[in-house]
Write a protein that binds this DNA or RNA. Structure first.
Lengths: 212, 212, 212, 212
DNA sequence: AATGAATGAGGATTCATTCAT
DNA sequence: AATGAATGAATCCTCATTCAT
């Protein structure tokens, strides 16, 4: 066996691998500590590359965190797509509850992404970090996705109604994630209730007839 | 001879006023930037008192932010009490929708408190700041309050069901706050939908009969 | 014997003395190495105070160097005034050659100030350091002083002529300073030639009659 | 098979062109910001070549800046020669004023060179950069040139007198350059006055008879 | 009850330079 | 003839905190 692993890496100069190592480290730390809490030094230590090397790969901290968001969102979308492929040809109602189950799955799979994203969302600082804007964009996309989804499930609903349900769904989802982080509630359970609730709201408003 | 007014005031007097000025400044900044983003220096500048004075009033940054949470929560409870006094003697249903309206009102009134609290909740750092624990405690209290509340509205429900609805309500509330911060949705509207949704969930599960 | 000198200083907290120590150190280093060459660390080492203390006394490097220019110029003016007091009641011609001798004296006395000032003057960077503007201002003042001076010596001359001679005198002075720094020429000698030259120019243009 | 043109050019070709691009970039930046202010990175960006390529062409920063001085001085001499060719066969007096005019022209043509050179001249750092020595050498050469020149114009003068006039001329020239940079004075005007002044000094000392 | 001054540790970022390819 | 990647040292500056007054 044998290869003298340790020293090797430094000379090898593998840009792609280094970039990934940095992003991995940054994603982990930023997911736990937020933007300000993510020091370049910490990323350097966790990734094994000197701080100055981070600056070869990323212009500055801002762009590093933005890149973290971008990559995480790609992964998120990718995971979503994999799940979506499984349920072509379902009835609306089946699709709905399946979609809710999948959403719960997503939250559980990407806690760092969501934690960081929500922290960025909540921050209100003079100069918005690029990362915040990027996450904002993913929220807009997610809402659009939700609208399309609900549009297919509740075919008779108008735009305004769909909008209300979409917002409620996203809000419920974010809130459940926080409750899971904070009080340790079970996300899957929470989503089941949420599904009923959204459906129930539609019924209660008289938008749909109560059969399931 | 009469006290040389001008000089005097700053030196001798108002420990209380200074403390308040510091808390005000810290609450504002922490509400915008979170724990790490709140530097003692920034608080010093905004409050007009030297940094060393902050350390006369508070042991360290940790306790300062904790004190911010404590004070904000007192104010929050106080506001809640004022609202609650208005609706003794309401029917359960009236109480419920009134409660929901009041909750929306609260979120709008205390954005800094919630922003800071949620940021603290999301952070996951090695040594938990005292402030986080304090906010955690307020969440526990809020949940208890919600349980009592829902218990009175849905008198027939068991503990497990109440719990589910309470969690959903809190989650929806947090999520709506975030949506308001991020996408600018209208909180009052959101809460109306949320009220319907929670009710609808109860109906959908067959816990209550659908009459309103 | 007795006072344990070394440690004492730190606790003593003598703001004024520290500020002076920092300015002394910065003046020396900046006078030798220019703006960029003056690292806060070097100033810290030379002054004996930690780098962070420098930032208690000065907002940033820019303001530190600007303060160096300001203080040096005060000293320069002060020295000038002391010299000027000596030669009230001189004939114009005596005044002129005395003034020239004094100027030479000044250059010799304040080499750090001039070196730094000229380096700042020559630099052409995107964001002008405050220090550069401050030195610029001293040049404007010096030119005004020169105009008044030459106006008294060559009473018959018009503004335009005075201006030309003033510019030439300042240029000669700066150039001689550089020649002294670079080739080690004798400044006093240089100024004697310069005095003759300025006078000679005036004669040559026919502005004054050649008698001295 | 024929060489895949496009790729090729950048890799194989023009070492000379790259070297020139680097020198151009370095000359520009160093002429504006001085030795310390010229970062390899900035030169890399302005020249369009990676930093490591600069090290292929030049041993280090020191030699790069030295090369800048060398090349600029060659250009300077070249320009001088072109001008000089125009005025063989002039009377001493004509030659003198023509020479002065030409000098003004030179300063206007090579501001970066002079700015950098004078900045280097003024700096006083522990380890003298090679570039400083190179510029020093050009000054020595320029002085020698001036002596020869003045020797031809004022044929009767002794070495000591020539020296004094040469030093004054160089000083005036440097000073006028600075005044142009700082106060925006007109260099050509300044040199006319300077010419009169040097001549006037010679007359005033009784070294030459006043006829022109 | 307060504060001017100080301070070590750490923040992000840039530096000149090297080296394997 | 060139360059992508790396790197240790240094850059300026901010941090939380302390302490003598």
């Amino acid at each position: 066996m044998a290869q003298p692993a340790s020293r090797q890496r430094k000379t090898r100069a593998n840009g792609v691998a280094s970039r990934i190592a940095i992003l991995d480290a940054a994603a982990h730390i930023a997911g736990e500590r937020g933007y300000e809490g993510t020091s370049i030094n910490a990323v350097s230590e966790r990734s094994g590359l000197p701080a100055s090397s981070i600056y070869w790969h990323f212009k500055n901290k801002d762009e590093l965190i933005a890149a973290v968001i971008d990559r995480s969102y790609s992964d998120w979308i990718e995971a979503l797509r994999r799940l979506a492929d499984q349920d072509s040809e379902l009835s609306p109602v089946e699709m709905y509850s399946s979609g809710m189950r999948q959403s719960a799955e997503q939250l559980i799979q990407f806690p760092d992404f969501l934690r960081l994203g929500l922290m960025l969302t909540l921050e209100r600082r003079p100069s918005e970090p690029t990362a915040r804007q990027r996450f904002q964009a993913t929220r807009v996309e997610t809402l659009a996705r939700l609208r399309r989804y609900l549009g297919r499930v509740f075919e008779s609903l108008g735009e305004a109604e769909i909008e209300q349900l979409a917002v409620l769904t996203l809000a419920g989802s974010d809130g459940l994630f926080i409750a899971a982080e904070s009080e340790g509630i079970d996300i899957a359970d929470g989503f089941e209730t949420l599904a009923r609730a959204v459906m129930g709201a539609a019924v209660s408003f008289g938008w749909v007839r109560p059969n399931s």
